[in-house]
Amino acid sequence: MLCKIFFAEQFDALRQRCGVAERFVESLSRCLKWDSKGGKTKSVFLKTLDDRLVMKSLSPVETSAFLRFAPDYFNIMAKTLFHDLPSVLAKMLGFFQVLIKNPLTNTELKLDLLVMENLFYDRAPTRIFDLKGSMRNRRIQSTGEHNEVLLDENMVEYIYESPLFAREHAKGLLRASVFNDTLFLALQNVMDYSLMVAVDEDKKELVVGIIDCIRTYTWDKRLESWIKDRGFAGGGRNRPTVTSPKEYKSRFREAMKRYILQSPTCWDQFRVAPPNHAAAPRPRFEEMEGPK
């Protein structure tokens, strides 16, 4: 068995700053295959038994994209961790190439493994959403299963009944973070990322993070976008999930602003009341079809 470590010094510095360096190897020494219950990827997922870390196998295309992406990722992490740049990028904490050879059968297995933080470590979310800002095939039939991952249309249905609010400061940080992160990702020619949102109804908290940050707009994604945009794959009611990084960035920003609202403040009582002093209507989200 061979293990090649990529960007060893940079990742070590990042882990030190994030406070996970001391237990990193100990965590990795005990892990199991994990069903992430979300997305359509064929990647292998592993999760450490202490629930701290998640590993994902990358395809050769994703590996090449990550190796180009990594230096700029370390730069934005430095700005985030040392200069307080608002960001909700889920932290990538290591990248390894593992090669296992069997001398008896003369076969070998190679895995390119990206190690990431588990966004929901030490949490007990009651709802989890994987949000891309698209309404095309972004709904699943909920079964109520533990850790079930719901999609954009499920989110719209959920917030119609129970709107999600964040306090003014938190909402401002989220808005700034999404703006910074999507700008960075668009400059890297990255699209198809998601905002993971976990709703902890008991603690009245939201946990958020942007994941899948290394899928670049390659020729296959361009072709997929072209086919879906012309309605050849299921109708043209909405814009396709896959689109150019610039369009994806704009659509993503607009959707995230609407999914999570700013909670009312004490100053709201001084605003003009609706006609006949009727109660203000509950926010509606029919327009969440996405920007035209």
Rank of each mutant, 00 (worst) to 15 (best):
N238F: 14
F165C: 03
S43Y: 14
L114M: 12
F285C: 08
R30I: 03
L261I: 05
Q97L: 13
M191G: 13
M77D: 02
V88P: 02
D130M: 01
S87K: 04
L183P: 04
S225E: 07
D72R: 15
L131P: 01
N189I: 00
P291T: 12
K33W: 07
L46D: 07
G38N: 09
V272I: 13
L150T: 07
M288A: 09
S43H: 15
V149S: 12
K246S: 13
F232H: 13
M92H: 13
G133S: 09
R17H: 12
D72F: 06
P240S: 02
D130G: 05
D181H: 01
S27L: 03
T41G: 13
K47W: 05
F95Y: 15
S142I: 06
M1R: 06
V199H: 13
W34K: 00
D51A: 03
N102L: 04
D130N: 05
A166C: 07
A78Q: 07
D220G: 02
E108S: 14
F252V: 01
L2R: 09
Y158P: 01
F179E: 08
N189L: 05
L99Y: 06
P240Q: 07
T80H: 13
N102V: 04
N75A: 13
F270M: 09
V61W: 00
K91N: 08
D84A: 09
L14V: 01
K221F: 09
D212W: 12
F6S: 03
A65N: 14
G236I: 04
E26P: 02
V25T: 13
S142F: 03
S250P: 00
V98N: 05
G94V: 02
S87R: 02
S250I: 08
H83F: 08
I214L: 14
S225V: 04
K132A: 01
N106Q: 15
K91L: 13
V190Y: 00
H169D: 11
A186K: 06
D122Q: 14
K56E: 03
P86M: 05
E254C: 06
L111M: 10
R253G: 05
P163R: 09
V272W: 06
R222C: 05
G38I: 00
L185V: 01
M135H: 11
A70W: 00
P245G: 10
Q269W: 07
L2K: 15
E117Y: 11
R271A: 04
V44R: 14
F252I: 10
F24M: 01
K228L: 04
E287S: 09
G39M: 03
S134R: 03
L109F: 12
Y121E: 07
R258C: 06
M55N: 09
E108M: 11
E161M: 08
E254F: 10
G39C: 02
F95Q: 01
S57A: 11
N154P: 00
K132V: 01
A8M: 12
R284L: 04
L99C: 11
K42N: 15
K33P: 12
I128W: 03
K257Y: 14
A278D: 08
T80N: 07
L67T: 01
K42T: 10
L32W: 11
F96L: 11
T63K: 10
N180M: 10
L223P: 06
D84K: 11
N238Y: 08
R230Y: 14
